[in-house]
Every structure is written in structure tokens, then in C-alpha cells.
Computed example of a mutant assay.
Amino acid sequence: MEILRHVVVLVHLIGFAVLFGTWVNEAVHRRIRFTQLMNWGLLIAAVAGIILAAPFGIEWELNYVKLGVKLVILLVIGALLGIGMARQRRTDSLSPALFWSVGALTFANAAIAVLWR
């Protein structure tokens, strides 16, 4: 069961890596836009995170405050991506505030996962 949990943690990290890596790529190339790959990264991270929040087969107590904070941040990132993608389709441009907010929140979510014990 522990190996399965480690595999799900890996998938969770890959989801955030896809989201943040795609965001960094767009930022480095000075393209202020959201891509479909960002949505996929968010979906992968969200599904794996929800699976990790299930207390099956572990001997320790889960930190539900941390999980709640991470879930709220994930939902905000999803909302910003949804709003940004809709505006981007309609006007073919994206607010830099939306773009930079997604990057900062994604970084913050990964930092919370690693630093908050």
C-alpha cells in the first residue's frame, strides 16, 4: 500500500510540474497566455491530491488544515485558468495579473506541500 501511495505522490508532483513548467515556458518566452497543457497539469495534480487526502492504509494523522489550504489554492488556480482561458478565447489576450497570479499560486502550493509539515 505504501508503494501505491508513493506512486500517487509522484503523479501529484508530475501534475504540478506540468502546470508550473508550462507556465515558466510561457513566461520565459514572454508569451502572456494560458495553454491547454496547464489545464491538464492542474487536473492531474487535483485528482492525485484528492486521492492522497484519503486516509487509507497510513499510520499517521493527516494534516487537514494543510490539505484544506492546498485545496483552496488549487480551486483558485482553476478559477483563474478558467477565467483567463475564456477571456483569451474572446479577446485573444490575457491580463498579466491573471498570468502571474497562476504562477505565484502554483509555486506557493508546491512550497506548502514541501515546507509545511
Rank of each mutant, 00 (worst) to 15 (best):
E61C: 00
V102D: 01
F34K: 00
K70C: 08
R90Y: 12
A45W: 02
M1H: 10
N63E: 11
A104W: 03
A108Y: 14
E61G: 00
L10E: 03
K70V: 09
N63A: 12
G15D: 07
L115D: 09
R89I: 04
A54F: 14
V7T: 09
T91I: 13
A45D: 00
R5H: 12
N39K: 11
E2D: 12
L4T: 07
V72W: 01
E61F: 05
R5T: 08
L42K: 07
Q88S: 02
L37N: 05
F34G: 00
L37D: 04
V8W: 07
H12K: 02
R33Y: 07
W100T: 09
Y64E: 10
V72M: 05
N109R: 07
W40E: 01
G41S: 01
Q36Y: 02
R5N: 08
I58W: 09
G78A: 09
G21W: 04
L13T: 11
N25A: 13
I50L: 15
A48Q: 03
I77T: 03
A48F: 01
W116C: 11
R33S: 14
L43F: 15
S101W: 06
V18F: 01
L4I: 10
L42S: 09
Q36R: 11
I73R: 02
N39C: 08
S101D: 04
V65F: 15
F107A: 15
V114E: 10
F56L: 14
I83L: 13
V65K: 10
L105N: 02
L98M: 12
I112C: 01
W60A: 12
G82I: 10
G84H: 06
A97I: 13
L13K: 06
V65R: 10
M85F: 12
A53Y: 09
R117T: 07
V8M: 09
R87Q: 09
F107W: 07
A104D: 01
L42Y: 06
A17Q: 06
S95N: 15
L94A: 08
L105S: 00
L62N: 05
A53W: 12
I73A: 04
S93I: 08
P96E: 13
I77R: 05
I32H: 01
L81S: 08
A97D: 06
E61W: 04
L115A: 15
A53P: 09
A79E: 11
G78K: 09
L37Y: 04
L19I: 01
G49I: 09
L42W: 14
K66T: 02
S101I: 04
I112H: 03
G21Y: 05
N25T: 11
A27R: 15
E26A: 13
L94W: 10
E59T: 12
D92A: 14
A54E: 13
A79P: 02
L19K: 00
D92T: 12
M38S: 06
L98W: 08
Q88H: 02
L62P: 04
I83V: 14
A54S: 10
G84I: 05
V8E: 07
V47N: 03
E26Q: 15
M38D: 05
F34T: 00
A54P: 02
V76W: 07
V9N: 05
G49P: 09
R5Y: 11
L105E: 03
L67I: 15
A108F: 15
K70F: 09
K66L: 03
I51G: 03
